[in-house]
Design a protein around this nucleic acid. Structure first.
Lengths: 131, 131
DNA sequence: GTTCGTGCAAACGGTTTGCAACAAT
DNA sequence: ATTGTTGCAAACCGTTTGCACGAAC
């Protein structure tokens, strides 16, 4: 795993214990945590941290491109340490969100899209994970 | 446009003025309205309608498959009269959401996805609409 | 000493829920 | 009479904001 401290510095974000804890949790979590997931986890190692700080940090990190927000749950954003392009699969039964590598899906945008300048493209798949 | 009254009956939803107004607005709106957009509009023709009724109706219609909820805006769901499969393009400057016909994008899910049983697949594109 | 980060609490916006009145069957 | 629908208000949940304290340069 890339060092959180180093990443913060590289992005011009002053490292603080809170920010390190937030980033480290998102980096190590395979799920796509909500702000509250982050809050709960960070609270364990840093029991005085406030929700405001967690939200501030998440917004700051997203702004700086350290993490990415995703619109994949009905209630609220989730956060993703993978900032490179990739897709998502959502298990409709468990609600779990899985990353899908970019190369696993081939997309070809055909005609009828000439009126759009596509800057970002993402595939969202839903279904159930095979046993 | 398909008759709202008929659609409600076909889906076993008892037609009421409120429900008709909600469905008709969603059907005729080319944008993807939020619950509040629906509320504001329906209020004009039916000034006593309550937010609760609008939300109840939207949830009911979505449950019955008359409309579809989409997770495309940071704050809250949007509603779509198009229940057949299609994609979306979001203009990052205006926030406008455009429907993209299913055939306009070709998707090929390759290997590495065998562990997922894909029941639904949707492409979300972002960028800016060409002038 | 000024700037930046934190923590608290209050506010906010979208959505849901409990409930009483009121149709509709 | 029973069931389903409405409207109101309050609650709820995720998120943002205002502000005062404290730390860092």
């Amino acid at each position: 795993m890339t060092k959180a401290l180093q990443i913060l510095r590289e992005h011009g974000v002053q490292p603080t214990p809170q920010r390190l804890a937030v980033l480290e949790f998102i980096q190590k979590s395979q799920t796509h945590p909500s702000a509250d997931d982050v809050y709960s986890s960070v609270r364990r190692t840093c029991p005085t941290v406030s929700r405001a700080t967690v939200y501030n940090t998440l917004n700051l990190l997203a702004e700086k491109g350290v993490i990415k927000t995703q619109l994949l749950r009905e209630r609220g954003l989730v956060f993703d340490a993978h900032v490179h392009r990739h897709h998502h699969f959502i298990d409709e039964e468990t609600g779990q969100i899985h990353d899908v590598p970019w190369e696993a899906v081939q997309i070809h945008a055909g005609d009828g899209l000439s009126k759009f300048e596509i800057r970002e493209i993402q595939v969202v798949m839903r279904g159930k994970r095979r046993p």
